[in-house]
Computed example of a mutant assay.
Amino acid sequence: MPLKLSVVDQTPVHGCHAKKDAPLLTVELAKLCDELGYHRFWVAEHHNSVHFANPCPEIMVAHLAAVTKRIRVGSGGVMLSHYSPLKVAESFSMMATLHPDRIDLGVGRAPGGSGLTSAALAYPHRPDNGETYADKAQQLEAFIQGSFPVDHPYGQINVLPDSSNKPELWMLGSSGGSASLAGELGYNIALARFIDPDNCQPDIFQSYRNAWAMSGHERKGNTMLAVAAICADSEAEAKLRAGTAVYRKLASQLGQREDFLTPEQVQDRYRQLPVSVQSAYDHILSGYTVGTPERCHDELATLAAAFACDEISLVTVTYSQAERLDSYRLLKQGV
């Protein structure tokens, strides 16, 4: 089957735009990706971040679905530990009713922020730090599908008077911890290689497929691989543009927090780093798909074959919106 390309957008706060414009730039990108023929467009959830400006994906998804025509729109993902499964089911079922066959509901275990934001989101209760994730994911699936056992009290709850239009359910993971759970509960699975490429291996999908088969689901479970990708007309330019995202990840690992740097600032910083930290930077870069359209397409095809999946979602973070738009245009050429 031909490789489907999709998008996971983190709503980056581009340095050459006002910070308040970041959500509007995600809207601009979604419209472009709709025109270019990308399969789906997901938005992430982050709290109290200097780099990413979307703490409420459900609002962004609703807006994007209203201003696009064809592309599937969804969350990549809702951080379920913070929320009531019923409320999430109600929100996304309403969107699926307004935009039939176009809404995806992806959920994740991670908090999407610090312990402080988790505490504030849980107030006046204690944050569960993922302890109830499996139970919440099971309840969410049952609310969406209307599949509570007949003797379960929640089976008496109607998410909507007519919930025949349903969001497509996905579970996010980065290192395999959720693979068996997703297969058992009947979620499709999206594997976030862009977060942890070292521990993101093809056997995670196999664990998912095994759990799916053992659970006896009638339909086929879908798999998607999400990769960090930055494309430009030349190899050198692509590597230069990638520096902004690579250095942000490196700085995060070192406990530093500052606004995105320009590619040129990153190169200046790189030259001043100790050799060991330069090696860490180079290692992060090696986990990205970076280069010309031809090089990126070859690597994406190789990844799709290795992971036995027919859909790859692209995560592109650059200093400027123009670079981000350019990368997505180039990556769709010839696909």
Rank of each mutant, 00 (worst) to 15 (best):
L25S: 00
G74D: 15
K4S: 11
A122S: 14
K249C: 02
I103N: 02
R271F: 03
G221I: 05
L86F: 15
G15D: 09
Y247T: 07
D198F: 04
T223C: 15
A119L: 08
Y328N: 02
R40D: 13
Q201T: 14
T316S: 15
L300K: 08
H297E: 08
T117N: 05
S276I: 08
V335M: 11
A62P: 01
L191R: 12
A242I: 01
G130F: 04
R70W: 11
D259Q: 12
F92L: 01
L169G: 14
Y123T: 02
P111G: 07
S207P: 04
L325S: 12
A66F: 11
A236W: 01
A304C: 06
H17V: 04
L169S: 14
H297F: 06
T289F: 15
K136L: 07
E237I: 01
A229H: 03
C231L: 00
H152V: 04
K249F: 08
G173I: 07
F205A: 02
A190I: 11
N48F: 15
D34W: 10
M171H: 08
T68A: 08
E235D: 11
A122I: 00
D9A: 03
C231F: 00
V107P: 02
S252I: 07
H125L: 07
Y133R: 00
V159D: 01
A213W: 14
W42Q: 08
D198H: 09
A96H: 09
E237Y: 07
P202F: 07
T318R: 08
P293V: 10
Q265H: 09
D268E: 15
R271D: 14
R324T: 12
L191E: 14
A62D: 11
L116I: 13
M224N: 15
L25T: 00
A232G: 03
D196M: 09
V67G: 04
E141C: 13
T292W: 05
K136E: 07
C56A: 15
M214L: 12
H47S: 10
G183L: 06
D104P: 04
Q138F: 01
R271P: 00
T68W: 04
Y328V: 03
D268S: 10
G177I: 02
L24H: 12
A179Q: 10
L116T: 10
C33K: 01
H51C: 05
